[in-house]
């Protein structure tokens, strides 16, 4: 019976431990998904006319697992035969203060690349930035590859409406054929953004 009393002692210690750790009634810390992108704004500025600005807005206030579907719209109209200076801004407004997601992409520019894809109205895009714009290293070798935070969009003389698909890939093969030229076919990688803005008017 000596063993029984030993056992009971062990059990009582266990029970004490049990009650002591069940006594945490503190509320847990809230956590947001920091990878959430709630706001994406693509701005296209006509360098010859400061009043001709086209803005593509994407809004998903509850992030990608929230039940509300994101919405997007296009403000302004593109003109024919014009090259626009484009830039993209990504925000996470669920954080306080609001997080500028661009910084994260700039910080790992060698792992990320935006693609601006369309086959409508002869519209073409081209990169105007390089990885070296976001770091201190010299602009040579792989550090000269594009990222796509800034770009140009050129229209032809065709008018009508077109779509623009914005793709952000990470862990892609930036050296694969065509990738540096803005073609995602051989890029591989994984999509952080894959969104199509519809009904962009060119006239």
């Amino acid at each position: 019976m000596m063993n029984l009393s030993k056992f009971l002692t062990v059990f009582l210690i266990g029970a004490l431990f049990l009650t002591s750790c069940s006594d945490d009634d503190d509320d847990p810390n809230p956590a947001n998904d920091p990878e959430v992108i709630t706001t994406m704004t693509v701005t296209l500025i006509n360098p010859t006319d400061a009043n001709n600005v086209v803005t593509l807005n994407f809004l998903d206030p509850d992030g990608d697992i929230g039940s509300t579907s994101p919405t997007s719209n296009v403000e302004g109209e593109l003109r024919t035969n014009t090259t626009y200076n484009g830039s993209i801004v990504l925000l996470n407004t669920t954080e306080n203060p609001v997080e500028r997601v661009n910084e994260e992409i700039e910080g790992e520019a060698d792992e990320h690349q935006f693609f601006y894809l369309t086959s409508d109205l002869g519209i073409t895009t081209a990169y105007t930035d390089q990885e070296c714009d976001y770091n201190e290293e010299p602009c040579e070798g792989t550090n000269a590859r594009p990222v796509g935070i800034t770009f140009t969009l050129t229209t032809t003389d065709a008018t009508g409406t077109g779509d623009l698909r914005v793709l952000l890939l990470h862990e892609l093969d930036k050296d694969a054929e065509g990738v540096a030229g803005g073609n995602d076919t051989n890029a591989g990688g994984e999509a952080d953004i894959d969104w199509t803005f519809e009904n962009i008017v060119v006239q």
Binding site: D27, P30, N32, D62, G63, I65, G66, S67, E95, N96
Partner: peptide, 25 residues
């Protein structure tokens, strides 16, 4: 997430289990 809470219709049945409606995000 407020949007999920509403989409599930939990507000009707489970309003009493909410202890903080002002959580960030």
């Amino acid at each position: 997430l407020q949007s999920r809470w509403d989409e599930r219709g939990y507000e009707n049945d489970f309003a009493d289990i909410v202890i903080d409606r002002e959580v960030t995000g």
